[in-house]
Amino acid sequence: MTSDVPQIDLTDPGVSRDPFTAYGRARELAPIARVGAPGFGPMWVVTRHADIRTMLADPRFEIRTDSFMRPDVPEDCLPYMRTMSEMNGTEHLRLRRLAAPAFTARRAADFAPRIASIVEALLDDLPGHGPVDLMTRFARPLPMDVICELVGIPAADRLRWREYGATVVTNVGPAFAAAIPAIIEGAKAAVARRRAEPADDLISDLIQAQEENGDRLSDTELVTLIWHLVMAGQTPTNLIANAVEALLTHPGQLAALRADPGLMPRAVEELIRWCGPALLTIPRYAREDVELCGTPIAKGEAVTASVAAAHRDPRAYTDPDRFDITRPAGQPGHLGFAHGPHFCIGSSLARVQTEVALAALLRRYPGLALAEPAPRAPDPGTWRLSSLTVTL
Rank of each mutant, 00 (worst) to 15 (best):
D205T: 09
A166W: 10
L247Q: 06
V168C: 05
E163Y: 06
V146C: 03
T170I: 01
A187Y: 08
N238K: 03
I184N: 07
P181H: 09
V146A: 11
N213G: 07
A209W: 02
T235A: 15
R216N: 04
R194G: 02
Q208W: 09
L150I: 11
G165P: 08
T235R: 03
A199Y: 05
G214S: 10
I207A: 05
A179P: 03
D201A: 13
L150N: 06
A175E: 11
V151R: 09
G152A: 10
E149R: 12
V172Q: 14
D205I: 00
Q210M: 05
L206F: 06
T237A: 07
A209H: 11
A199E: 15
D200K: 08
V191K: 03
E211I: 00
G152P: 02
A155T: 13
L239P: 09
P198R: 10
G252W: 02
F138R: 02
I180N: 04
S204E: 08
E149T: 13
L222Y: 11
M231D: 12
E163R: 14
G214M: 01
N238T: 09
A177M: 02
L248R: 06
A182K: 11
R158D: 06
M231R: 04
L248P: 07
L202C: 11
V230D: 08
P154E: 12
S204F: 07
I203E: 05
G214T: 01
L150A: 13
E221M: 08
V191I: 05
T249A: 14
V151H: 09
I180A: 13
K188C: 06
A166S: 15
V146W: 01
I153V: 15
A177I: 03
N171R: 14
A177F: 00
Q234V: 15
V151T: 12
L206P: 07
A139M: 09
A139V: 06
R193V: 05
I147A: 06
A241Q: 01
E163G: 12
